[in-house]
């Protein structure tokens, strides 16, 4: 049961490209939304939904499913694109993003959208909720796993570190957090606003197992997830170095694309670029 699992990096890369195209189209259609941080997280979200997680899109409430919490909830477009491609709801729904009666709100709402596990968007809280889910799984003796996507700017929220302590204290080895480290936040670079220093070392100091990868290298994402599954007695953080706006050259590394929608001509240019033949080993 469950959605078709994509096994090879090539298949996953193709799916990630489709998801990026959905992001551009839906944010363009809505004339509002967050393309930059959706594109930076697209490869990780793709590997989670089409390779890693044990899910049943036809039965979103299946108790044994793995959980994904998009703590950086403003990247809702990439989550919605993955959920639609996985079969939780029709792909056509994506173009209703942010419309008044759409189930696809600007930030994920678990009561609106099938497959959304936690209502997020207020930064800093998703990791705490994920800890609750991971502890509950342990309490049930269940093998289900919990995945969280954090932003690097989001780490400025103090509640993140409350949860970081709990996850280590309770040895939540069923919990894997990604930090989508695209180095940009609304007011500028993370280094300018509130420099994080070495993120991995901070998590390590709190007792987490730390893996650092290129967050657009699909085999590296797959290997990190396999390593997280093998890691016992401590939670794993994958510090993923990413490019905000990845895949659309005029958006890459530009903070103005954090929360700005592309105009129709920019949508066409972005789709044309994403449709260009995939380069081998592109990372």
């Amino acid at each position: 049961m469950g959605r078709a699992v994509l096994k090879t990096p090539e298949e996953l890369a193709a799916r990630a490209r489709d998801i990026r195209k959905h992001v551009i189209k839906m944010v363009g259609a809505a004339s509002s939304g967050h393309p930059g941080g959706s594109l930076s997280a697209a490869d990780i979200v793709t590997v989670l939904y089409f390779n890693e997680m044990n899910i049943r899109p036809e039965d979103p409430g299946w108790p044994r499913r793995d959980r994904f919490v998009l703590s950086k909830g403003h990247a809702a477009p990439v989550l919605y694109a993955a959920l639609a491609e996985a079969g939780y709801f029709p792909v056509d729904d994506l173009l209703t993003l942010r419309r008044i009666d759409s189930h696809l709100q600007g930030h994920p709402s678990m009561r609106s959208t099938p497959g959304v596990e936690m209502s997020t968007g207020s930064l800093g809280q998703g990791l705490s909720a994920a800890c609750g889910m991971a502890i509950a799984a342990k309490l049930d003796g269940a093998s289900r796993r919990v995945y969280v996507m954090l932003g690097d700017g989001e780490l400025e929220e103090g509640q993140i570190w409350e949860a970081v302590m709990t996850a280590a204290h309770r040895k939540l080895d069923n919990l894997t957090a990604f930090v989508d480290s695209n180095r940009l936040q609304i007011d500028g670079t993370v280094a300018e606003v509130k420099s994080m220093g070495r993120i991995g070392e901070k998590f390590a100091a709190f007792g987490w197992h730390v893996i650092e990868i290129d967050g657009h290298d699909i085999p590296a994402i797959m290997a990190a997830l396999a390593e997280a599954r093998r890691t016992q007695g401590q939670p794993t953080v994958v510090v993923a170095h990413t490019v905000k706006g990845k895949g659309v050259s005029f958006m890459e590394n530009r903070v103005e694309w954090h929360g700005t929608a592309p105009k129709p001509d920019q949508v066409q240019a972005a789709l044309a670029e994403l449709d260009a033949p995939l380069k081998g080993g592109d990372a």
Binding site: P63, Q125, S128, A129, G132, M133, I135, A136, E162
Partner: peptide
């Protein structure tokens, strides 16, 4: 019983996670 230490914000958000798992 789960003591979150002196961290009420985290405790409340974690409670949400527990509730989504049937607790």
């Amino acid at each position: 019983t789960f003591n979150f230490g002196i961290a009420e914000q985290e405790m409340v958000a974690a409670a949400a996670g527990f509730a989504t798992c049937g607790k």
